[in-house]
Structures are given as structure tokens and as C-alpha cells.
């Protein structure tokens, strides 16, 4: 489905993003490091409030990280620096979750799609108009739609406009922030198919954020599971589903309902009690310790580090240790 390579496109090193709120510091993303390879789809899953969207926005350059290093093709990107940020926005784009809120209702489709090209001073006016038509056709709309306003479109069509806007400036890396969760089931598959076709055609790299684990497994090459600001497990999608190691990932995967009554009846569901704790003033030990069914004393004392257990499979848990050779 995607043209994978081992060339590192984007690397996040020890990224933290804190927000000052009344009552303390909200650690939305806390010491997260991983790399995204060129041409792959990296899935990012977790429950609401785990920091996946914040991480996506850091990766895309909307939020400058509190600390840590973001580098693109080996070069550091300083998001606090205006021109760096501007240049980075030329290569990294985002597709938002809500196609109703992310399009300006007072702009025509053509001006929405064109805006990025105007900002980045691409092409002359005539060529830009042609490019808008090309993009509309590329995402399965037609050129007559260019002069309409967003309210004239259905949810699925709006999401296509959002995709066309993201593609307009020919980016290499796209953050898809829950692009399908606001859409109906039959429309979801249309958008997923479109995204994978575009990846094949244009060699795009995706960071795909979602909470629907079946979709993430289908579209992603590798998946990172986040819990309360930390990446707790990272592996190729087959490996993660076949050989789940972290207790949280296990519970998360077992909680996903399967659209098959027989399988559903046989499945043993691990129900973890309680809710996700507040990310303000997180505990000293492992963030999952309060809900973990296998919690031990060490978990409450120190935070486990993300380590490579088998090649390409990273887990942050005291109970899972790499086998010594």
C-alpha cells in the first residue's frame, strides 16, 4: 500500500509540550521520541486526552514544543523561529477532524484551496486556478465545485476539500488528525481509500491519528500507542496486534468491539476499571499504574523508559524487559 523506505523523514527527540493551567502544569506530551520514515503511515492511537492530537500538532509545526528537538530530513526545525516555521509549513500539512469547523464558511472552495499557494507564493494566478481544478478532480470532486461555499457540501465532500487544501502546496508529510471520525461508516471507507490512493500516487508520508483501532491497523505500517502523554508501545501494526506486550495496549485492543457476533461472544475482554487520570500533576511512577491490572511496587516508584524489546518493537513497562543475550 505504501512505498516504505528506511530513510528517516521526521524525527522527534524527547519532545515535551506542557501547558500552564490553573492548578499546575498540564503535561500533554511528556518526553516522546520516535522517527517517521519516508513514505510510511505511522498510526497514533490512544484515548481522548492522551496527547495524540497535541503531538500531531507539534509534528506539523502548529505548537512549538516546550523542550525537545524536531528535525526534518536531518535538519533541526526551530518552530519558535518565524522563517523556519514558515518553511516547515511548506512541507508539512494537516487534515483536521471536523470538516464542518475547519473550513472558513465565508470563503469559496477555490479560495480555500488556493490560500496556501498564495501564502507560499507558488505559481502565477492562472496556473493556481488550474491547480485548484486539478486538486478538486484528484480528490473526487469536480471543477464546478470551485465557486461554491463549504455549507453546500456534505461531510464527506468537505473532508475531501480539506484534503485538497492540504495537498495544494505539495507537502511531503501530512498529519491526519482523526480525519474520519466525524464521518459515517459508508463515507469513512471512501476517505480511507482516497488517502491511500494519494499516498501511492504522490509518495506522501502520513501521521495518522485516530481512536478507531480497526481503521488504524488497516492503514498504518507502524503504530504508536499513547497513554497520558507517553508513548507506551510502538511496533509494526501486525506485530502490535499479534504480540501485544504493554498491559494498556492489551486492554485497549481487547476493548475494541469486533463486527462479528461469534467472535465477539468468544472474546475475553480485559476491562480496566476507572478513567484516564488528569494529566495535570501526573504521578511519580508509571502513568498507567493506577489502572493497571498487573501493577507492582516498582511501577509506583519510577517511570518505565521506552526500550526495544525485539527489533522494531518498543515498550515502556517495567514488566516487559528485553531478553539478555
Amino acid at each position: 500500500m505504501s512505498t516504505k523506505s528506511n530513510e528517516v523523514l521526521l524525527s522527534l527527540e524527547d519532545i515535551c509540550k506542557y501547558f500552564k493551567v490553573s492548578g499546575g502544569t498540564l503535561k500533554a506530551v511528556d518526553h516522546v521520541s520516535f522517527e517517521i520514515h519516508k513514505g510510511e503511515t505511522m498510526g497514533l492511537v490512544g484515548e481522548s486526552g492522551c496527547g495524540k492530537s497535541t503531538l500531531g500538532r507539534v509534528a506539523m509545526g502548529i505548537y512549538p514544543p516546550t523542550s525537545g528537538k524536531l528535525s526534518y530530513k536531518g535538519k533541526a526545525v526551530n518552530l519558535k523561529h518565524g522563517s523556519d516555521r514558515f518553511n516547515y509549513s511548506k512541507v508539512a500539512q494537516i487534515i483536521f477532524q471536523d470538516p464542518y469547523a475547519s473550513l472558513d464558511p465565508r470563503m469559496t472552495v477555490s479560495s480555500i484551496i488556493e490560500e496556501g499557494m498564495v501564502i507560499h507564493n507558488m505559481y502565477d494566478e492562472k496556473r493556481r486556478k488550474e491547480r485548484v481544478y486539478e486538486l478538486l478532480e484528484m480528490v473526487g470532486l469536480n471543477r464546478e465545485h470551485a465557486n461554491r461555499f463549504p455549507h453546500e457540501f456534505s461531510g464527506g465532500q468537505r473532508q475531501r476539500i480539506g484534503i485538497a487544501r492540504a495537498l495544494a502546496i505539495e507537502p511531503e508529510f501530512i498529519v491526519c488528525d482523526e480525519p474520519i471520525s466525524a464521518l459515517d461508516v459508508s463515507i469513512q471507507s471512501q476517505v480511507i481509500n482516497l488517502l491511500s490512493d494519494l499516498q501511492d500516487r504522490l509518495g506522501l508520508t502520513y501521521l495518522f491519528i485516530a481512536h478507531d483501532l480497526n481503521i488504524v491497523k488497516y492503514i498504518s505500517d507502524r503504530i504508536a500507542v499513547m497513554y497520558l502523554g507517553n508513548v507506551v508501545e510502538l511496533a509494526s501494526s501486525d506485530e502490535l496486534y499479534k504480540n501485544t506486550l504493554h498491559p494498556y495496549s492489551k486492554a485497549l485492543l481487547s476493548a475494541v468491539p469486533i463486527p462479528d457476533p461469534n467472535e465477539e461472544a468468544q472474546k475475553k475482554r480485559i476491562i480496566i476499571s476507572g478513567d484516564v487520570p488528569s494529566p495535570i500533576n501526573t504521578p511519580k511512577g508509571c502513568n498507567f499504574a493506577g489502572r493497571c491490572p498487573q501493577v507492582c511496587d516498582q511501577c509506583k516508584e519510577s517511570k518505565p523508559k521506552l526500550q526495544e524489546i525485539t527489533p522494531g518493537h518498543f515498550v515502556a513497562c517495567h514488566l516487559v524487559q528485553p531478553q539478555k543475550k
Binding site: 459508508s186 471507507s189 481503521i215
Partner: peptide
């Protein structure tokens, strides 16, 4: 039938395209 096919199953083959229902 189309609704059930448009869901990726847990052991779906990635090279397989999702069946989508065209239109709205």
C-alpha cells in the same frame, strides 16, 4: 452487505481496498 464490507476487519489484508458505497 455493503455496510458490513466497508469495515476493515481486524485481520484485513492491507493490499485489499475497502469496499466503499459511492454517493451519499
Amino acid at each position: 452487505q455493503a455496510l458490513l464490507k466497508s469495515l476493515p476487519s481486524v485481520d484485513a489484508d492491507k493490499t485489499e481496498r475497502l469496499v466503499s458505497i459511492a454517493g451519499t
